Computed example of a mutant assay.
Amino acid sequence: MTSVPVFANAKARGIVPEWSRLGYGNFALASSPLATQAAGGPADVVMLLGARVGMFTGTGPRSFIPPGAKVIQVDIEPEEIGRSRDVDVALAGDVRDTLRVMMDRARGRTFPDHAAWLDGLEQSKKMLRAMNDQPASRETPIHQSRVAREIADALAGDGIIVADGGETSIWMAEQAIVLNAGDWLSHGYLGCLGVGIPFAIAAKVAHPDRRVIAILGDGSAGLNIAEFDTAVRHKIPIVVVVNNDQGWGMIRHGQRTRYGSDRVVGAELGATRYDLVAEGFGAHAEFVTTASEIGPAIKRALASGKTACINVITDPDQPHMTSVAMAKGSLPEGEVELPYYGKKKLVPTA
């Protein structure tokens, strides 16, 4: 009715199908320079529908909401409205009921033409997904976006994707196209790692007729690896893909950017055979070291009808741009930045 695009956080992807012109699974696209240029400027009104204010919706430097935009906040909990930022219009109520009232009031009205903005957003969405196509085409070392693309293409919008890990979840979020609410499960930006296998098990139990693929970082895999036993014992046929870059990627790449390649501490892991671990629990197992084998391995795992683990050895030296961007910036003399924990003053020792 209004041609207003909808941007979703990790909990709401698929509420509006992402193959449609109005559905966007990455709300960072709202501040895309290409889209802003096409629209003739940034968004002037942003409506938060049941979305709690946080790092990307507050007032800080990472917020996608333009500083000059009017903000409408709809939430069923009145105390949440305006709790972390000032809002211009506060609507306390259930999102569904509120939208129904808005739709009723909108009928017969004329709304601005958003075609130019939507064109820019559509191009931004395509560019984000295709940004790493060239390095992803190589056979080895396997680029992480290739793994994510193979998973997205294998499901083709018909199945549930679970993403667990730091950089791993971001690689997957860029490639996934989510068509239905509940078809994307992840830990959100707070990064509560280790949820991948439990989420996948729960999704398959709730929807036994749906295909479920979970992608885990190798660090995340280690947190709940024994849940393969749970899935095997209860005959729950989920497919788990391990993005094995042999380290805590987001931490490692942040340290390399900030301190130098020779100062990585506590972020390296081995080329662990998670496939053999899963096989020991009775799962179908695949070990992949070349890119062209990812797709066939996924097909075999889905066809096995069993709990399955696909251990993919990926490039340990391929950072996601997010990790690099968060670690950049100059620091005053006598200060050090600990990734995710902020700036700390150096205390001289005797």
Results as ranks from 00 to 15, higher is better:
residue 160 I to L: 01
residue 160 I to T: 15
residue 161 I to T: 10
residue 162 V to Y: 06
residue 163 A to K: 00
residue 164 D to M: 07
residue 164 D to L: 01
residue 165 G to V: 03
residue 166 G to M: 02
residue 166 G to E: 05
residue 167 E to K: 01
residue 168 T to P: 03
residue 169 S to T: 12
residue 171 W to K: 00
residue 173 A to N: 11
residue 175 Q to I: 02
residue 175 Q to T: 02
residue 175 Q to D: 03
residue 177 I to E: 15
residue 179 L to V: 03
residue 179 L to M: 14
residue 180 N to F: 08
residue 180 N to W: 07
residue 181 A to P: 04
residue 181 A to R: 13
residue 182 G to V: 02
residue 185 L to D: 01
residue 185 L to V: 11
residue 186 S to L: 04
residue 188 G to D: 05
residue 188 G to N: 09
residue 189 Y to A: 14
residue 189 Y to C: 12
residue 190 L to A: 13
residue 190 L to G: 12
residue 191 G to R: 12
residue 191 G to P: 03
residue 191 G to N: 15
residue 194 G to R: 01
residue 195 V to G: 06
residue 195 V to F: 11
residue 195 V to S: 11
residue 197 I to S: 13
residue 197 I to N: 12
residue 199 F to R: 03
residue 203 A to P: 10
residue 205 V to S: 02
residue 205 V to N: 04
residue 205 V to H: 05
residue 209 D to S: 14
residue 210 R to E: 15
residue 210 R to P: 00
residue 210 R to C: 06
residue 211 R to D: 15
residue 211 R to Q: 15
residue 214 A to K: 09
residue 217 G to Q: 07
residue 218 D to L: 02
residue 219 G to R: 01
residue 222 G to K: 04
residue 222 G to F: 08
residue 223 L to Q: 13
residue 223 L to C: 04
residue 223 L to K: 05
residue 224 N to L: 14
residue 224 N to C: 11
residue 224 N to G: 02
residue 224 N to T: 15
residue 225 I to M: 14
residue 225 I to K: 06
residue 231 A to E: 13
residue 232 V to D: 10
residue 233 R to S: 13
residue 233 R to Q: 15
residue 236 I to R: 04
residue 236 I to E: 09
residue 239 V to Y: 06
residue 239 V to C: 00
residue 239 V to W: 03
residue 242 V to M: 07
